[in-house]
Amino acid sequence: MKKFIFTSAIFLSLTVSTGFAAPINSLDQNQTAAGVVDDSFYIEHKFSDNFTLGVQKNDIYGEIELGRNVRAIIGSRNDNSDSSFYAGGALNASIAPNVEGYVSLVGGNHFSEMQLGANIAIAPNVDLNANYRSFMPDSGSDSNRTTIGATVKF
């Protein structure tokens, strides 16, 4: 019942909108996560005990675990026939039973992006994701949004 109330509160308090960044998932070696974040699909696979490769919309990225809750992120974003390299990092930790929180920050030549979120385990291998994302391009307007998504791990 508590999960239902918490999930309902998230849906009521957040505005669903377009986001670029996939959530930070905790995967076991050889495990895959596939999910939806608003209008975007992503898939990522953990190939070794410290390396995950993922693809989402215009991004291809890798995550290298540097410690239990710390990872480096490197990737390439292809927007409007212009590809840009980015790098950054993420921290994640358990913040409540069945809830893992995370924060990530990445930046490239033409943008920086911060994400703060939580993955809520609603069933074995199924997570609901709620996050706040701030996208700051060098040219154009900043975009600050909340998003909701879902992930299946297999």
Rank of each mutant, 00 (worst) to 15 (best):
R77W: 03
S40Q: 02
L105F: 13
G19R: 14
M114G: 10
A21F: 11
S104Q: 05
S13D: 03
L128G: 05
D38S: 13
F135C: 04
N125L: 06
P23Q: 07
H45L: 01
S40D: 07
T147I: 14
V37A: 10
G149S: 03
D28V: 02
S83Q: 14
S143G: 03
I73M: 15
N98A: 05
M136I: 07
T52D: 04
P23M: 10
T147Q: 15
H110A: 11
N125M: 00
F85Y: 05
D79M: 10
Q29D: 12
A72M: 14
G89K: 03
G62Q: 10
T146Q: 13
A9D: 00
S112H: 04
L27F: 06
R145T: 13
E100K: 00
V152Q: 01
A150Q: 04
A22I: 03
S83R: 15
F51K: 01
T146Y: 12
L12V: 13
G62D: 12
S139H: 12
R68L: 09
N58C: 06
R145F: 08
L105E: 09
I43L: 00
F11C: 05
E100D: 03
S104I: 02
T147N: 13
A87M: 06
N119H: 01
T147H: 11
N144L: 09
S81H: 09
T7L: 07
S26P: 09
G54H: 08
I95S: 10
G140P: 05
I60S: 14
T7R: 13
A34L: 00
F20S: 07
R133I: 03
N69C: 13
L27A: 08
T18I: 09
D39K: 14
E113H: 01
R145D: 06
S17E: 00
A33W: 05
N58G: 07
R77H: 01
K153L: 01
V37P: 09
T147P: 08
T52V: 09
S139A: 11
S40I: 05
I74A: 15
